[in-house]
Amino acid sequence: MPLRKPLLASLAVIAAGLALLGGLSILQSAERNAEPATFPEGDPKRGAYLARMSGCIGCHTDAENGGAPLAGGTAIETRFGSFVPPNVTQHPNAGIGDWTVADFARAVRQGTSPDGDPYYPAFPYAMYTRMSDQDVADLWAAFQTVAPAEGGRDGNDLAFPFSIREGLHVWRALHFEPARFEPDPARSEAWNRGAYIVTGPGHCGACHTPRGLLGGRDDDRFLEGGSDGPGGAKVPAITPQALKKAGWAHEDLVTALRTGLTPEGDSLGSGMGEVVRDGTAWLTDADLKAIATYLLEPRNPNGG
């Protein structure tokens, strides 16, 4: 009998947790219905460019092992376990071939599957949420041109309790707020373009912003770096103050993002090297200059 009270207390906690999750699930359903009924016509060429900017190619392609484009990437190691980027080809079973553009929009901007299940935030939907309807339509048009491929569904390997997907409802309530990008009228066109790329599809803050106990970004320390990058790698600060202190100039940043070479002639680290190879090296000079403009100009702590 001495175990009766602790057991009842534990059951009460579990019941309360399930009630909370149930309530959050209802809220999440409302989020799913927030996407527009129709989207503009997509431009696959612009979508392919956005896919490079967003890191889709590098993340969802296992290039080292000869994987088909977007047929699933290599595992991303974190302190919570490993996340395997899934197959996003047009395969109807292994990929997203049976999705609609609305399904795609909910995944990209709200982090939920067509069935309403939450995605782990290793998928940076908390930053992709800033994309416009036209961005989503263009990406969707580009993804529809990707040939179907098998594989890429090996699954995640996460430690308990992070392996319980329902717990993501709590994470989302604490750390996710859907919001489109809003330009700052007091800033230049280049600064706003850079802000859109860095805080949106480029998702620089996913690695360069410190994260808390549950993996939520500390936006009061936006781009201040940290020791919790992929594979436990240390990630440097890229605030205006940090970059200028380290001697980075505008053209240095543009060159590094295009070639992967630092002002001293060194190569950027393996993680950032992959970002350059699969992403920023493909961007236009205008966009690279916009990123540099945004990174080097003082801004608010939350990235504004």
Rank of each mutant, 00 (worst) to 15 (best):
Arg193Glu: 10
Gly202Val: 04
Arg52Ile: 01
Lys5Pro: 00
Gly215Leu: 05
Ala281Tyr: 09
Ala147His: 11
Tyr196Pro: 02
Ala63Gly: 02
Arg153Thr: 15
Asn87Leu: 11
Thr38Cys: 02
Leu283Lys: 07
Gly17Phe: 07
Ala107Ile: 03
Ala16Tyr: 02
Leu3Trp: 07
Trp140Glu: 00
Gly226Ile: 11
Asp62Asn: 15
Pro118Tyr: 04
Ala195Phe: 00
Leu139Thr: 01
Arg106Gly: 02
Gly247Glu: 03
Ser227Asp: 11
Trp171His: 08
Pro185Arg: 11
Ile96Tyr: 01
Ser29Thr: 14
Ala179Gly: 00
Gly66Ile: 10
Gly200Phe: 02
Leu3Pro: 00
Pro92Asn: 10
Asp98Ile: 13
Gly202Ala: 10
Leu243Trp: 07
Asn93Thr: 15
Arg180Ile: 06
Ala12Glu: 08
Thr38Gln: 08
Gly151Leu: 00
Lys289Ile: 06
Gly202Thr: 09
Ser113Ile: 05
Leu168Phe: 03
Asn33Trp: 12
Ala286Gln: 14
Pro185Asp: 05
Gln144His: 03
Ala286Cys: 04
Asp184Val: 08
Thr259Tyr: 07
Thr262Leu: 15
Ala141Thr: 12
Ala147Trp: 06
Val198Lys: 03
Asp184Pro: 02
Ala15Gln: 08
Leu268Ile: 15
Asp266Thr: 14
Thr280Phe: 10
Gly17Val: 08
Ala147Ile: 06
Pro121Lys: 07
Lys289Phe: 11
Gly200Tyr: 01
Trp282Gln: 14
Asn93Tyr: 09
Asp218Lys: 08
His175Thr: 04
Pro178Met: 12
Asp133Asn: 15
Leu288Trp: 01
Asn156Trp: 04
Gln144Lys: 09
Ala137Gly: 02
Gly72Gln: 03
Gly279Tyr: 05
Lys5Ser: 06
Leu27Gln: 14
Glu64Trp: 07
Gly97Leu: 12
Leu50Asn: 05
Asn300Tyr: 15
Lys244Glu: 15
Pro298Glu: 12
Ala75Lys: 03
Ala9Ser: 12
Val136Gly: 00
Ala281Gln: 13
Leu20Thr: 12
Thr284Met: 11
Phe80Lys: 09
Glu182Leu: 11
Ser25Ala: 13
Ala9Glu: 06
Val84Met: 13
Asp117Gly: 13
Thr61Pro: 04
Gln90Lys: 08
Lys5Tyr: 12
Pro210Trp: 09
Glu182His: 12
His208Phe: 09
Trp140Thr: 03
Arg130Gly: 04
His208Val: 08
Val254Phe: 07
Thr74Gly: 11
Arg106Ser: 03
Pro298Ala: 13
Leu243Phe: 04
Lys5Thr: 10
Gln90Met: 14
Leu18Tyr: 01
Ile197Val: 14
Trp140Leu: 06
Trp282Arg: 15
Glu35His: 11
Thr293Phe: 11
Pro301Gly: 02
Ser82Thr: 15
Ala141Pro: 12
Arg299Met: 04
Ser267Pro: 00
Arg109Thr: 15
Phe181Thr: 08
Val170Pro: 01
Ala105Pro: 00
Thr145His: 06
Ser188Trp: 11
Arg277Asp: 08
Met131Ala: 14
Asp98His: 14
Glu189Cys: 04
Asp278Lys: 04
Ile76His: 10
Gly265Cys: 08
Arg277Ala: 14
Thr280Gly: 13
